[in-house]
Amino acid sequence: HPLQNRWALWFFKNVRSQPWQCNLRLVTTFNTVEDFWSLYSHVQLASKLSSGCDYSIFKDGIEPMWEDSRNKRGGRWLITLSKQQRHSDLDSLWLETLLCLIGEAFDDYSEEVCGAVINIRAKGDKIAIWTREAENREAVTYIGKVYKERLGLSSKVVIGYQAHADTATKSSSLTKNKFVV
């Protein structure tokens, strides 16, 4: 069952003695439903990764970094998790994120999606969907609403969208939300 896009899985492991880009590795690409599950069943669950590691899944050809031309004008819908949620929610939220991407869950706005990233961090894990154009309010808010619904988040929970240009110039905890849903 072919997917609309070919996707690439990237793995980042923080080795402080090496430059950031040396710690980022392309694992493999896939473009069928079957190959997605084959890959998913062979890699470590996100909750089992050590702190400082990331998984990224991006459309093939887009590198999982702000600097990529397809990302630099974009931003991310950011889900921040408490430490406790690593064991209760992290893996299911990440899988749901992956299913949103490969299934093209955002209808015509799926073309705006670049990829998704999960950061495993001692202070709290993060999951984000990256889109390519932060100024495209209609697309960004549609994606945010569908994503929040797919994650099963309560209407009381607010998630924010941050432009990469803002994140790059500030520490992420201080980055202002461009949109919220």
């Binding site: 069952h1 599950w37 084959s38 749901e96 299913l99 299934g103 093209e104």
Partner: peptide, 20 residues
């Protein structure tokens, strides 16, 4: 035609692939 799949369809393949 756009190839989109809902979550139930995608999840249905998880165990088919795992049993292959």
């Amino acid at each position: 035609e756009k190839k989109s799949y809902d979550r139930e369809f995608l999840l249905g393949f998880q165990f088919i692939v795992a049993s292959m």
